[in-house]
Design a protein around this nucleic acid. Structure first.
Lengths: 105, 105
DNA sequence: ATCGTTCATCGTAAATATACGATATATTTT
DNA sequence: AAAATATATCGTATATTTACGATGAACGAT
């Protein structure tokens, strides 16, 4: 491959594709749901609810954070993750825009 | 890695993650838009509008077809691709469901 | 100061994705 | 039957993703 051609598309399509990529693993969808349902947002509590190791969960959290779907706030030795509503609302808006273009929904 | 743990999640989360995966490349988002905007749906016409080779576009079409977002109908030596509205509507519905759970949108 | 807790990062291995040219297949045209 | 056209698939190379254990860094408690 040598290099990716992803850059040769519109910023809009690239952004949406990147959001989709962040959602492209059931663990990450699950994590978003967990973050919503729990009062606590500690990594440990998330790990408990997933069939994955702590390091793997940490990587998934990193990917969600990369696109801005979640934020992590350091709280002593712990880290408290939470949904970033602003990004999520933008994602929903862009997603709806795509659907309105390509579909009769 | 040796094996994937994707199977250890709910069918719902797996399905949505798989749809997201299909949308996780700007070329595939572009293809969906092209299929909507054009009367013709020949592969050749799609290739013309993308900075990618014919074989690469063919692979992207295969991925979209895999999850049922598009259908391909053989028409002589050509293949006519089109959006599968049924899958798209289901995808939108499931996507909205996710957003309603995790977001105040 | 050391210890336990919490989490990220490093190193590593296997799987999957992305991209292309070359080739194969199928059909239409000549 | 041969040539042209349209597309899929194969082979291949590189990049990225997924997963884990081990290690490291930061903090609070002892």
């Amino acid at each position: 491959m040598a290099f990716s051609k992803k850059e040769e598309f519109t910023k809009e399509d690239m952004w949406l594709a990147d959001i989709a990529k962040a959602l492209a693993h059931p663990a990450r969808i699950r994590i978003l749901k967990i973050l919503t349902s729990m009062n606590s947002c500690m990594v440990g509590n998330i790990v408990e609810q997933l069939p994955l190791s702590q390091s793997t969960v940490s990587q998934h959290l990193k990917e969600l954070k990369r696109v801005g779907l979640i934020d992590g706030e350091i709280d002593g030795p712990k880290v408290c993750y939470c949904i970033n509503n602003k990004t999520l609302i933008k994602a929903k808006k862009e997603m709806d825009k795509l659907y309105s273009i390509i579909c009769n929904c």
